Simulated scan of single mutants.
Amino acid sequence: MTLGRENVPDRRTVGVALAALLLVGAVVAVGAGAYFAVGLGPDEAALDAVESSGDVTVDRLDGATVVRSGPVTAETRGLVYYPGARVNAESYVPTAAEAVAGRDVAVVIVDMPLNLAVLGPNRADDAREALPAIESWAVGGHSLGGAMACRYAADNADEFDGLVLHASYCDRDVSESGLRVLSVLGAADGVLDAERERESRANLPPDARVVELDGVNHAGFGAYGPQRGDESVPTDPAAMRERVGNVTGAWLAG
């Protein structure tokens, strides 16, 4: 079939169409970036309670937040912590406070690009520089942050002593890594893929400690409010964070 001139779009029409497509793409990209960049949380009341308690110290650095209970020495146990997807790093300060209170433990919560650990998987490299005195480090995180921490640990097992998974699982084999591993789960977690988590336990060392906490859901690991798809629980959010933090801090200190 032969196209007549009346059926062939002119250059101006094509140019306008391409410009429109580019504009739509840009709007979508900006909207998606803003969606993730805003982040969930933190709960300001929970943050205020931590900073007014006097039990812990919160130091805000460039790219990270350090939570500690006292002077940091070579004996202090450190944890580099990766936030969950679209969760503001500050949302984990209250949980970290529960972990370090009364213990020689410090937690470095890492800021992530657009609040996505998948965009900053190697940020534990620089995070440890915040507390150079510490000799024993673990890396961990919540949800997607935990998964990315596992990948990082798998590639850098000789530089770390432990791995902490909060409502997460490993998709890399660290069973022969020599790492101590703690996996803390919420019995009321409606977000985590429970079947995949259980299957992935084969990737953990035989002596990995797996703890399931009753009355704790996915959002209970941080202070950022309810999460879509999660289970509703009667447990007070502060109580959930206390349970998670105490299990984690005791394991780190031990």
Rank of each mutant, 00 (worst) to 15 (best):
V8Q: 10
R12H: 14
L18K: 10
L18W: 05
L21E: 03
L21K: 02
L22W: 06
V27Q: 14
G33K: 12
G33W: 12
F36V: 14
L47K: 08
A49P: 10
E51G: 13
S53R: 05
D55I: 09
L61T: 15
R68D: 12
V80N: 08
Y81P: 02
Y81I: 09
V87S: 05
A89Q: 07
A97W: 02
R103G: 09
V107H: 03
V107P: 00
V108M: 05
L114T: 07
N115C: 08
A117L: 04
P121H: 02
P121R: 05
N122M: 12
A133T: 15
S136W: 12
A138N: 05
G140A: 10
A149S: 13
A149P: 07
C150E: 08
Y152N: 00
A153Y: 07
A157F: 06
F160V: 15
L163P: 00
V164G: 03
V164D: 01
H166N: 06
S168H: 07
Y169D: 10
S175Q: 08
L179D: 05
R180V: 00
G186S: 07
G186C: 01
G186D: 02
A194C: 09
E199S: 09
S200I: 04
L204Q: 03
R209K: 14
R209D: 01
V216Q: 07
G220M: 04
G229R: 06
V233E: 08
R241C: 04
G245K: 06
N246K: 15
A250N: 15
L252G: 00
